[in-house]
């Protein structure tokens, strides 16, 4: 069953600016761990941000969990975003807050303004946070400030924060490109294992083709705003890669 359906998606950031995405169609099934590969500037980040409307699409249709994303009013959009966990390239943590508070901030969509003013998260949330912090291997760092951690540890905080949402879809925006190769592999394995365990589909921007082949069941190749490839990982040939990355030589 398709969790996410994208049809004819186009994006330009300003009326006269260049078109970043030029009509993209694809689907994410409920058991997919789908990679989006492509050279820098292909539109990978823009594409993934359209799914939860951090970027406003200029044309096309996005159906996520049965809802037409582009038609949602602000309140309904916030409610939909609660179901979508996002993990970022540069972790996007709140540096001056503790690891625990960062993880708890994943629950903000479910927390009233009054409670969030005092960071008074319910007991259940705190228990869940402790569970996920243990799951990502950060039990010894709970009360440290987020900026005291190493890159790999910071991304683990980001993962725990996304999981706190009890997401129905994970959006991963280059989750490993700020990390060294060994840590990258560990982090990808962790995300994949958790996704399998929780049966959450994932949509993952990644420029490292090797990692994409290793961890993802399907691959979409993007080049300069067009979709160049869409198929199972086994179907990806070197010729396809040459095609996707052809522009990068220029």
């Amino acid at each position: 069953m398709a969790v996410l359906t994208v049809e004819g998606l186009k994006v330009r950031y300003s009326a006269k600016g260049p078109e970043i995405l030029k009509g993209i169609d694809f689907e994410v099934q409920d058991d997919d761990f789908l990679a989006i590969i492509g050279p820098s500037g292909a539109g990978k980040s823009t594409l993934i941000r359209c799914v939860n409307r951090l970027v406003e699409p200029s044309d096309g249709k996005i159906v996520l969990l049965g809802e037409d994303v582009c038609a949602l009013r602000p309140r309904a959009l916030r409610n939909l975003r609660r179901n979508v966990g996002m993990i970022f390239q540069e972790f996007n943590l709140i540096n001056r807050m503790s690891v625990m508070d960062n993880v708890l901030s994943g629950r903000l969509g479910y927390t009233g303004n009054m409670r969030s003013l005092f960071r008074a998260f319910p007991q259940d949330d705190i228990q869940l946070a402790l569970y996920y912090l243990d799951r990502v291997g950060l039990s010894d760092h709970i009360d440290k400030r987020a900026d005291e951690l190493s890159g790999g540890q910071r991304q683990r905080v980001g993962i725990a924060r996304a999981l706190m949402q009890r997401p129905k879809l994970l959006l991963l925006d280059e989750p490993t490109s700020a990390l060294d190769p060994k840590i990258s592999r560990e982090v990808m394995a962790l995300i994949r294992d958790i996704a399998l365990e929780l049966k959450v589909p994932a949509l993952c921007n990644i420029h490292d083709v090797q990692l994409a082949k290793e961890f993802c069941n399907r691959i979409i190749g993007l080049q300069d705003g067009y979709k160049k490839f869409d198929g199972a990982t086994e179907q990806l040939r070197d010729a396809d890669l040459d095609d996707i990355y052809a522009m990068e030589v220029l």
Binding site: R81, R82, F88, S105, L108, Y110, N113, S116, R161
Partner: peptide
């Protein structure tokens, strides 16, 4: 703006974006 983006992505309200982001 990165933490701001993160709080928006979890479904945070305008107030939460300011207070946490």
């Amino acid at each position: 703006t990165k933490p701001v983006e993160a709080i928006r992505a979890v479904g945070g309200s305008q107030f939460q974006v300011m207070y946490y982001g």
